[in-house]
């Protein structure tokens, strides 16, 4: 498995191609999160993180996923720092012999990365900067697992 927390941009397609090799692979599921300009006013997004805890928290989430499902490999990349609209923020990919395990594990990883990995998003528009508030629906999603 591979967990990368970085300020550098990444190429989600190239990452996925590199991840998709290996013997006995039956299913690859991936998710890529992109900086979204909901109402046409977003100038940039700043992502703060808790260096040290971030890597530990993501690793714990990945370990949990590996224990719950039959996975051959997991990839998590999450950026921090200043991101522009349209840039990939993060990606998750799961590799399994079986489709159901790959889908479920990717879904689980996304739910937990959203609410349990110490990242905080701040959006900058012409009117200034505001911290993105966590949504109850994201916290509630954890009870699914």
């Amino acid at each position: 498995m591979s967990v990368r927390v970085q300020d550098a941009a990444f190429d989600a397609g190239a990452e996925l191609n590199a991840f998709s090799t290996g013997d006995g692979v039956g299913a690859i599921v991936s998710f890529t999160g992109i900086v979204r300009d909901t109402d046409g006013t977003l100038a940039a997004m700043e992502i703060e993180h808790y260096s040290g805890m971030t890597e530990r928290a993501i690793q714990a989430i990945v370990d949990d996923a590996m224990a719950r499902w039959e996975l051959q490999d997991v990839l998590v990349i999450h950026r921090f720092g200043r991101l522009v609209v349209g840039a990939p923020i993060m990606m998750v990919a799961t590799k399994s012999a079986h489709r159901a395990d790959a889908f479920a594990a990717a879904d689980f990883l996304m739910d937990y990365l959203k609410s349990r990995a110490p990242f905080w998003k701040k959006e900058t528009t012409a009117d200034g900067s505001t911290w993105v508030a966590a949504k109850d629906v994201d916290e509630d999603a954890l009870s699914r697992w």
Partner: peptide
């Protein structure tokens, strides 16, 4: 000890 608001990753 670290204090912070609810996380907004992903």
């Amino acid at each position: 000890v670290a204090f912070f608001p609810p996380m907004t990753g992903g």
